Simulated scan of single mutants.
Amino acid sequence: MPDIAMHLLDIVYNSIRALAKMITIRIHDSEKENMIEIIVEDDGCGMDEETIQHVMDPFFTTRTTRKVGLGVPLFKEGVLATGGTFDISSTVGKGTMIKACYIKNHWDTPPLGDLAETLATLVQANDQIDYLFTYTSDTHQFCLDTKEIKAILDGVKINEPEIILWLKDYIKEGLSQ
Rank of each mutant, 00 (worst) to 15 (best):
3 D>C: 07
4 I>N: 04
5 A>Q: 02
7 H>L: 05
9 L>V: 06
9 L>K: 11
16 I>F: 14
20 A>W: 00
20 A>T: 05
21 K>G: 10
23 I>C: 04
23 I>Y: 06
23 I>T: 05
25 I>Y: 00
26 R>N: 15
27 I>W: 08
30 S>M: 02
30 S>C: 01
30 S>G: 02
31 E>F: 10
31 E>Y: 12
36 I>N: 09
37 E>T: 03
38 I>Y: 02
38 I>C: 04
39 I>T: 14
40 V>F: 02
40 V>P: 09
41 E>T: 15
42 D>L: 02
43 D>Y: 00
50 E>L: 14
52 I>Y: 05
53 Q>S: 15
54 H>G: 00
55 V>C: 02
56 M>E: 12
57 D>K: 01
59 F>W: 10
59 F>P: 01
64 T>N: 13
64 T>R: 14
65 T>V: 13
66 R>D: 12
67 K>L: 12
67 K>M: 13
69 G>C: 06
69 G>H: 00
70 L>C: 02
70 L>F: 14
70 L>P: 05
71 G>N: 04
71 G>T: 06
72 V>L: 13
75 F>C: 03
76 K>Q: 13
76 K>S: 11
76 K>N: 01
79 V>C: 09
79 V>H: 10
82 T>N: 04
83 G>D: 06
88 I>P: 04
89 S>K: 13
89 S>N: 13
91 T>E: 15
93 G>D: 06
94 K>P: 00
94 K>F: 09
95 G>D: 02
95 G>F: 06
97 M>V: 15
98 I>V: 14
99 K>I: 12
100 A>D: 03
102 Y>H: 02
103 I>H: 04
104 K>Y: 05
105 N>F: 13
105 N>C: 10
105 N>V: 10
105 N>T: 15
106 H>S: 14
107 W>N: 14
107 W>I: 14
109 T>A: 07
109 T>S: 11
110 P>C: 03
110 P>Y: 03
111 P>A: 05
111 P>L: 09
111 P>S: 12
112 L>E: 07
113 G>R: 06
114 D>N: 13
115 L>R: 05
115 L>G: 07
115 L>K: 08
117 E>M: 10
117 E>A: 11
118 T>V: 13
118 T>R: 01
119 L>F: 12
119 L>W: 09
120 A>D: 06
120 A>S: 15
121 T>F: 09
124 Q>F: 09
126 N>Y: 06
127 D>H: 09
127 D>A: 14
129 I>R: 01
130 D>L: 05
130 D>K: 05
131 Y>G: 05
131 Y>R: 00
132 L>M: 12
133 F>P: 06
133 F>T: 10
135 Y>H: 08
135 Y>Q: 04
136 T>Q: 11
136 T>Y: 03
138 D>Q: 01
141 Q>I: 07
142 F>S: 03
144 L>E: 03
145 D>Y: 08
147 K>F: 10
150 K>L: 10
150 K>P: 01
151 A>E: 15
153 L>N: 09
156 V>G: 01
160 E>F: 03
161 P>C: 07
161 P>R: 11
161 P>S: 11
164 I>Y: 11
165 L>D: 15
165 L>S: 15
166 W>I: 07
166 W>V: 00
168 K>T: 15
168 K>I: 15
169 D>Q: 14
170 Y>E: 01
170 Y>Q: 06
171 I>Y: 05
171 I>M: 05
174 G>Q: 06
174 G>C: 00
